[in-house]
Design a protein around this nucleic acid. Sequence first.
DNA 1: GTCTATATCATGATAGAC
DNA 2: GTCTATCATGATATAGAC
Lengths: 209, 209
Amino acid sequence: MEHGFEATSLRALTTAAGVNLAAVNYHFGSKEELFQAVLTRRLDPMNQARLELLTRLEANAARRPVSCESILTALLIPALKLARDPQRGGKDFLRLLGRAYADPAPFIRRFLSEQYGLVIARYKAAFARALPHLPRKELSWRLHFIMGALSYTLAGTDALKLIAELNPHETANDEILLRRLAPFLLAGLTAPLPAMSAVSQALDDQLAL
Amino acid sequence: MEHGFEATSLRALTTAAGVNLAAVNYHFGSKEELFQAVLTRRLDPMNQARLELLTRLEANAARRPVSCESILTALLIPALKLARDPQRGGKDFLRLLGRAYADPAPFIRRFLSEQYGLVIARYKAAFARALPHLPRKELSWRLHFIMGALSYTLAGTDALKLIAELNPHETANDEILLRRLAPFLLAGLTAPLPAMSAVSQALDDQLAL
DNA sequence: GTCTATATCATGATAGAC
DNA sequence: GTCTATCATGATATAGAC
C-alpha cells in the first residue's frame, strides 16, 4: 500500500510481521503468490457481494431495467462496507487495491482481469439495459473512466492529503469519499453524447486556434 | 511507461538507447534525476501552455467568469496537442505521465506536486468563478476525481480495457479518447450536490439492508 | 514447520584508464 | 566525455539443521 509491489521487499514484510524471511516462500511459494493471496482473500468476497446485490436488484425489478443509480450503488456498497470494517482491512485494503489497479506488473494486470472479468460483464449488461440510448462503445468507455476515478480515489495518494485539508475535524473516511464520488460518476455516466456536449464545441473552437 | 520507474533498470534503458551504462550517472547524476529530466522536458511546456490558455480565456471574457466548458477544454487541449505530436513523445509521453501519477515513490509525488501546484490553483480559482453555487470543498473533490479519470485513462492499462471489450485499435487514438472523456468530466463537474443526487438516496436505502 | 545460512543474481553507482 | 571493470548492496529463493 505504501510503496507498491515492486518496491516492497520480503525482508521488510517479514520483519514487520515478526516472522522469518523464509516463511513466505514456504507458505506461499513466491512473493507474487503471497500478493495474490492477500488480494484474493478480500477481493473475492467483495466481488461476490457485488454480483449478489445486482442479482437481487434484477429480481426485484421483475423484467424492467434496474435504474442507473441502483446499479452504481450496488457496485459501490460492497467496497463501502469493506471500508467500514477494520477487521477486514478497512480502508487500508482499498488503498492497496487502488495501487494494484495502477501497477504495471503483468502478473497483477492478469490477476485483476481474471478477478474482475465476470463482475464487469454483468454490470455492463445491466447498465446497457438502464441506458438503452447509450451506444455500447460509449458505455464501455464510461465504465473505464469510472474505474479510473474510483481506483485513483481509493489509492488515495493525494486523497488523504485532501481529506486532511478539507475535513480537518472529520476522520479521513472512505464513506464520505464514496458519497461524494457517486454523484460525480452518475452524472458522467448519464452525460450527453460527445456530439451533443457543450464541451465538444469548445474543443473544436480552441483546436482551431 | 511499460514497467514503472522502480522496475526499469538503468541497464535496460542504456542498452535500449545504445549508450553506456555510466552515461546516466555522468550526465544526470542519478536514476531519479534522469526521470525528472525526462518528465520536465515535456511537462513544463505543457503546463505553461495551460496557464497561457487560461489567461487568454480570462482576458477575452473581460470581467465575466469563463464557462466551465472552456476552462475544462483549456486544461485538456495542451495534452491533446502533445498526444498528436510524435516528435514530442506523443501518446507515449502521456502514458508515461499517467503512470507517474500512480507511482507511490515519494520523490515522484513531490516532483509532481511541485510541477502542478500552480496550474491546479489557477484552474481551481477559475472553476470556482464559473460554478459559484458549488462549495469550495466539493469543487476540490471533483477536481481530484477529474485528475484520477484523466491519469488512469492516459496511463492506458490494457488489461482492464480488454475486459470492457474496447477496441485496442481505437484506444491508440488519444484524441478520440479525450473527446469522449471531456463530456464525462464536464457532467461530473456540474453534477448535483451529493445531498441532491439520486444516487445518495439509493446508497442510504441499500446500506440500510 | 521454523529457523539459519547461503546461493545466485541484478541493481545503482563509481573509479580510473583512455 | 566515454568506456571497462568493479564495488557494495539488496533482491528472491533455497538447502539443510533442528
